[in-house]
């Protein structure tokens, strides 16, 4: 995987994947919560590992995350990640208003299970549209949940790419709850494996130059 072969048009393609994928996920979230959810224009960046954690507030920032492996034609990793307070509010909305605490709470099994299900549904809709758009056969693994430091979690998605590079292409889409207008955001991170880029670009008719 040579990042020098990536042209602006390829980044546009990845941005469109982020756009369509997160668009479907935002609609699913909106339906689940029965309220409007706003989505940012996706950003696609080739950045160092260090900068990826900066995107979510620094390596030490505590986040709630759902991780899944993408299996099939173009393997990769996907994260649904949001700041801990935002995750608690989201789950309170979903669980009918009961107070939710995700840290230092012995009785948080149902909250974690709900978080995992939210991540599963959202990532599933993201991935389905990614698959439809590209015609590639893609399936999600069973999701896994973790509440921990952003850096510790994100590094888990970097092993495949880290054997070939110190940089990764990160397709990031943020969304916000329109009514509350707060700045807390959820993020989708899509990290295709190094060999998957060629397959994605080929599937969409814009192969990388050899």
């Amino acid at each position: 995987m040579d990042f020098k072969k990536i042209q602006p048009i390829h980044l546009d393609i990845l941005r469109e994947i982020g756009n369509i994928g997160a668009g479907h996920a935002a609609t699913a979230l909106s339906t689940m919560l029965n309220k409007a959810v706003d989505m940012s224009v996706p950003s696609v960046n080739i950045i160092s590992f260090e900068e990826i954690s900066e995107m979510i507030g620094g390596a030490e920032n505590v986040v709630a995350s759902v991780f899944l492996r993408i299996l099939g034609d173009a393997p990769g990793c996907m994260f649904f990640m949001l700041p801990i307070e935002q995750a608690e509010r989201l789950l309170e909305d979903l669980l009918g208003g009961q107070a939710v605490q995700l840290i230092n709470e012995n009785d948080s099994a149902i909250s974690l299970s709900a978080l995992q299900e939210v991540g599963n549904i959202l990532s599933g809709s993201y991935l389905t549209s990614f698959s439809n758009f590209t015609g590639l056969n893609l399936q999600p693994s069973v999701p896994a949940t973790s509440i921990d430091m952003a850096g510790a979690i994100l590094s888990f998605g970097l092993f495949e790419i880290s054997t070939v590079s110190d940089y990764a292409i990160v397709i990031d889409t943020a969304f916000t709850d329109i009514e509350k207008h707060d700045n807390v955001k959820g993020h989708f991170f899509l990290l295709p494996d190094p060999d998957s880029y060629a397959k994605i670009f080929h599937a969409l008719g814009v192969p990388l130059d050899e």
């Binding site: 620094g58 030490e60 430091m149 850096g151 510790a152 590094s155």
Partner: peptide
């Protein structure tokens, strides 16, 4: 002192 943050499987 020397520090590193956010060690997961690293």
């Amino acid at each position: 002192t020397i520090r590193t943050t956010g060690l997961g499987s690293c």
